[in-house]
């Protein structure tokens, strides 16, 4: 059979392979159709970034609207908010990356060392739970904890003889609330991939290390970490790609006018322009600008990873 297919022309061989695996291709089909309908077809809407379309027009009106080139992009780049939004978005994302990215890794390494399986499972379950709580609820909890009106943290501060801190209204503290609550919510969930990768490491390596007299810390550093380095790299590339996603939902629910200076990000600006001002063309242009930068960041991170001999995304 293999010999026959070798004799077929290349095109015929490919088609024959497709027919042989037809059930699997059919299985892919619903997902593919879903992607085309819900992800690629709406991309036509991106064209309004280059037009002056009001959202109250029909699709035909949108198609007929003349192109105005990069006007909206230029307006955004020259606007007062451009610098503030870029700075806030990047700073908040970098803070999340610096403090948020290593946390699940460290937590996974620590969990891996727990020998009592029952205890390990309980800790894992408790740490996953916040992931399933919506940001609406989490922001309510955060507000209750940090409020100056009887909040837990401020009560403790007062008990210690310190002054109350208005965490959600003071630009000096607002970002700390964002980063810490973000880490708390996603810490457990983000360890899943690391824990899965750790289980794939050959146990003989650990046994050999024990024979050689390695302690737990050195095994974690010299066996576990290198064993999951590729996964860490891939997740880091993803994180860098999402650098401009600074956490719209969380910020939207927690921020207010006094902290706009340190919390207003590209996504909240797009929301204001699109939903409040109903300036859809302009907000689409800003959103597209963000996507292009994100794409560039992914490519740069991928190339850099490969330069350092790590596995990239492609």
């Amino acid at each position: 059979m293999a010999k026959t297919s070798m004799l077929l022309p290349k095109k015929g061989r490919r088609w024959s392979a497709v027919r042989r695996h037809m059930p699997y291709y059919l299985l892919i089909l619903p997902g593919l159709v879903w992607f085309i309908i819900f992800k690629y077809v709406p991309m036509y809407g991106v064209s309004i970034a280059f037009k002056n379309v009001t959202p109250f027009e029909t699709v035909e009106d949108m198609m007929r609207s003349p192109f105005i080139g990069f006007k909206h992009f230029k307006t955004f780049i020259n606007s007062y908010y451009f610098e503030i939004l870029m700075r806030n978005t990047l700073e908040i994302s970098l803070l999340r990356l610096v403090f948020g990215f290593p946390m699940p890794l460290i937590f996974a390494l620590l969990l891996n060392e727990v020998r009592n399986n029952r205890y390990k499972k309980i800790v894992q379950t408790i740490s996953y739970l916040p992931h399933f709580i919506s940001w609406v609820v989490v922001s309510g909890l955060v507000t209750m904890i940090v409020t100056t009106d009887g909040g837990l943290i401020n009560n403790l501060l007062v008990l210690m003889g310190r002054e109350e801190i208005y965490f959600l209204g003071d630009p000096r503290y607002f970002r700390s609330v964002l980063i810490i609550s973000g880490i708390w919510k996603e810490l457990g969930w983000n360890t899943i991939i690391y824990l899965a990768a750790i289980t794939g490491i050959d146990t003989q390596l650990y046994e050999a290390a024990v024979v050689d007299g390695c302690g737990r810390f050195r095994r974690a550093i010299h066996i576990t970490l290198p064993g999951i380095a590729n996964i860490v790299t891939i997740l880091l590339i993803f994180s860098i790609g999402g650098l401009l996603d600074a956490g719209f939902e969380q910020i939207m629910l927690l921020y207010s006018e006094p902290v706009y200076d340190v919390a207003d990000i590209i996504d909240t600006y797009v929301y204001r322009k699109g939903m409040i001002e109903m300036n859809y063309s302009f907000s689409t242009a800003v959103g597209l600008f963000k996507s292009v930068i994100a794409m560039a960041l992914i490519i740069i991170a991928n190339v850099t990873a490969k330069l350092f001999g790590r596995e990239g995304l492609w």
Partner: peptide
Amino acid sequence: TDMNTKIASELTKFVMGT
């Protein structure tokens, strides 16, 4: 909106003393 947002943000900071 940009002007109103900027003004509102700064006014609240002045009143709050930040």
